[in-house]
Simulated scan of single mutants.
Amino acid sequence: MSGVREVAGALCAGVFDTAVALGALVGGRLADGPGLTAVLGTGAVLALPAAVADMRGAATRS
């Protein structure tokens, strides 16, 4: 069972690192192009579905 945990941990770390790298790439491109307002707007647009999913999950758990 220990091997499965190691694989799951490595996969989780890989997904996290990929998300950080993509965030830096997209954020940098937006900051260099349209500007910082576009970075903040994109962050807000991406945060909205995450907040909705979190609220749905909280409603399901309670």
Rank of each mutant, 00 (worst) to 15 (best):
A47G: 07
E6H: 12
G33Y: 01
V39M: 05
T60K: 11
A24Q: 11
R61L: 14
R5W: 13
V7Q: 03
C12P: 00
L36G: 03
L48G: 00
P34R: 06
A10E: 05
V20G: 07
G43C: 07
A24E: 13
V15T: 11
M1I: 07
A47R: 04
A58N: 06
R5V: 06
L46E: 01
G3H: 10
T42C: 05
V39D: 00
L30M: 08
A50T: 15
A50D: 13
A8W: 02
D32A: 15
E6Y: 15
G57P: 12
A38Y: 09
T18C: 14
A21F: 05
G57W: 00
F16N: 03
G14R: 01
G33F: 01
A13H: 08
E6T: 09
G33D: 10
S2G: 08
L46V: 13
T37A: 12
D17T: 15
G57I: 05
V26N: 02
G35K: 08
A38G: 01
S2I: 06
C12E: 09
T18Y: 04
C12K: 12
T60I: 11
D17W: 11
L48N: 00
D32G: 05
G43I: 01
A19N: 07
M55C: 13
D32M: 07
V26R: 03
F16E: 00
L36I: 04
A50F: 11
G33C: 09
M1R: 09
A13Y: 08
G43F: 04
D32R: 15
G35R: 10
V20F: 03
S62A: 10
A50S: 08
G23H: 03
A59P: 10
M1D: 07
D32Y: 00
A51Y: 07
D32C: 04
G27K: 12
A44F: 01
G57V: 06
D54Y: 13
A50G: 14
A13F: 10
V7I: 01
F16P: 01
T42V: 09
V4R: 09
A44Q: 01
R56D: 04
R29H: 11
R29T: 14
T60S: 14
A51C: 13
A44E: 02
D54H: 10
S62Q: 09
V26Q: 07
R56F: 06
A19S: 14
